[in-house]
């Protein structure tokens, strides 16, 4: 992170080198109905198309054909406690076009392993069982708080 204020670039000046800029890019799941050679990113609001191209090209060696960016309005939502309406931050999206021969598939990050589903159902069953036990135990004494027991 850099908090420096960089001088304005003027024609003829040496190329400005910025170390540690406030740039980040986050790969997001592309919207459906997009061609398979298009990758979607959320990125920092200050990044221009050139920045995005350099970021992907120079750091990750991604061959880039074209970049389209758009800024979407943040969501409006009711504040949880106060009830008035607040707005989330705007998001800059970058749609990066790869060569048409390439395809991009969004990785399945939270991949389910083979036993995962069985484990989940097992623990759910156990919880259900203990809850039923608790109901059974207390069915003869309504209106008594749960902590009132031996």
């Amino acid at each position: 992170m850099s908090t420096r204020w960089y001088p304005i670039y003027q024609r003829g000046n040496p190329q400005l080198r910025v170390f540690l800029p406030n740039f980040w890019m986050k790969l997001v799941r592309p919207l459906p109905q997009q061609a398979s050679n298009i990758v979607h990113f959320q990125c920092s609001m200050e990044m221009t198309k050139h920045d995005i191209k350099n970021y992907l090209d120079k750091i990750y060696n991604v061959p880039i054909i074209d970049i389209r960016t758009k800024i979407t309005t943040g969501r409006f939502r009711k504040d949880a406690g106060k009830g008035y309406i607040v707005k989330d931050d705007d998001i800059k999206y970058a749609m990066v076009v790869l060569p048409k021969t390439m395809t991009f598939e969004f990785p399945n990050i939270f991949e389910k392993k083979k036993g995962d589903l069985e484990d989940d159902t097992k623990s759910l069953e156990e919880t259900k069982k203990s809850f039923r036990k608790y109901i059974n135990r207390n069915k003869d004494r309504p209106d008594v708080p749960s902590w009132f027991s031996i």
Partner: peptide
Amino acid sequence: FEYVPESVG
């Protein structure tokens, strides 16, 4: 062509 026209530009 299965995609939306916006995806081409």
